[in-house]
Write a protein that binds this DNA or RNA. Structure first.
Lengths: 234, 234
DNA sequence: GTCATTCCGCTACGAGTCGTAGCGTAACTT
DNA sequence: AAGTTACGCTACGACTCGTAGCGGAATGAC
């Protein structure tokens, strides 16, 4: 999947590629990313840490960015969305677990670096989609289906294109807000922020606008003065 | 502002730094970013295009990333938020104009590249904040104040910290969604998307959930089948 | 004017990285 | 066995890095 695959793995003759070398290279890439960052990360350094020859790297990956994508893709596979009982709790949960992933140095460094490369490398973009973006989008689909089963959201409409537009929008809003808060604004994504963000997502701008004074305008756990952790789920 | 400033500009003797060279260097940096991208951008290339010596660059900027920040900061100054008459139209407007900025190759390439660098370079983050992030955040403050004057949003509450939390949240949601849609999902931010996003932001998840069938649940221009451009303002 | 100071353009340098080529050897298929 | 492919190793030219040293130009202080 990751590797160029000189022949489509069918009818392969000769010595096969070492799977152990693959694992060592990807692990060494993650470790090196944590310690020295993207800009000082070199192919020679990775090869040395992995205990393989530099030429072996170039036989499998055409560029540093492609190698790094494969190295961190597994991290985005670890994302899970356990059922927390209601839509609000599920959203807060996915926000916090995605933020936890972005706190890992190798994840955030690799993500931003390959995105930067992709702005000038057309071929890199589909690769990022498959390895990283799509692995997060499934969480939105899962959480949405679950909320529909609970009756918290209406079932899919007749037009599947309209459904896709809304799912894409929700995905961009959640992932974008967490990434921007974490990596651009450089502020912590904690339970307090996750609660406020979820209120905005579910109920709109009016629900988070300051006046906590008037009675029961906002529904449920939206009270900005609330001190209890999650309000509903966990 | 940008330059290390060997002496605090007070009591400067000797030959002053050439402002023309500064302009030429920053312009050359932007042009080179468009043509060859971040990874192949070298200090020697910039110096050659600007018609200055490479040593002149190193006398003023310690690293490529700092130079690029200063080169693109002016682009983020061009963002404006004209009064479109109502909050909904103002939000759609700022979404579209920010998306237009991110369509410029030098802006998106530079933004993502310096953000990637900042994940491993502590000193770079405040610099990005001043030069780029804060110049967008003022738009949120402007639009919010305008909406309060119109009576679309309640006035600021007693606790200014609560106001700051909400403003930061709105900023991260808008900027994050646009950046994620444009540069990560790699999909166009057009009027249709801006309208849908604004509905979500103002009214919450229920307003964009598919069923357009039942009568008048969603308010105003939220109808997903709407074909008219902006719905309200201009 | 003269002096001190600071910036500029130029050249040169060692160090490091890049991506590739060539070799002999190891591992697997038929 | 023979054929094929991957591996580790070494070496290479090309490029970029960031710095140092030089002579000359532009300013402020006197």
């Amino acid at each position: 999947m990751a590797v160029p695959d000189p022949l489509p793995s069918a009818q392969r003759r000769g010595r096969p590629r070492s799977a152990a070398a693959d694992r060592a290279i990807l692990a060494a890439t993650r470790a090196a990313l944590v310690e020295i960052g993207w800009s000082r990360l070199t192919m020679g350094e990775i090869a040395q840490r992995a205990g393989v020859a530099k030429t072996t790297l170039y036989r499998r990956w055409a560029a540093k960015s492609e190698l790094v994508i494969d190295a961190v893709a597994v991290l985005f596979d670890e994302l899970r969305l356990p059922d927390r009982g209601c839509l609000r709790a599920d959203v807060e949960g996915v926000v916090l677990s995605f933020a936890a992933l972005l706190r890992r140095p190798e994840a955030k460094t690799a993500l931003m670096a390959v995105l930067a490369e992709s702005t000038t490398d057309e071929a890199l973009r589909p690769r990022i989609r498959e390895a990283i973006v799509d692995r997060q989008k499934r969480l939105v689909l899962d959480g949405r289906a679950r909320a529909q089963q609970r009756g918290e959201l209406p079932p899919d409409p007749a037009d599947p294109a309209e459904t896709a537009r809304v799912v894409d929008l929700i995905f961009d809003v959640i992932a974008g807000a967490v990434v921007h808060r974490s990596l651009v604004s450089d502020c912590p994504v904690d339970e307090s922020w996750a609660r406020l963000f979820t209120t905005l997502l579910l109920e709109g701008l009016g629900a988070v606008s300051p006046p906590p004074a008037p009675g029961g305008a906002a529904a449920g756990a939206a009270a900005p003065d609330g001190t209890e952790p999650t309000g509903g789920g966990r």
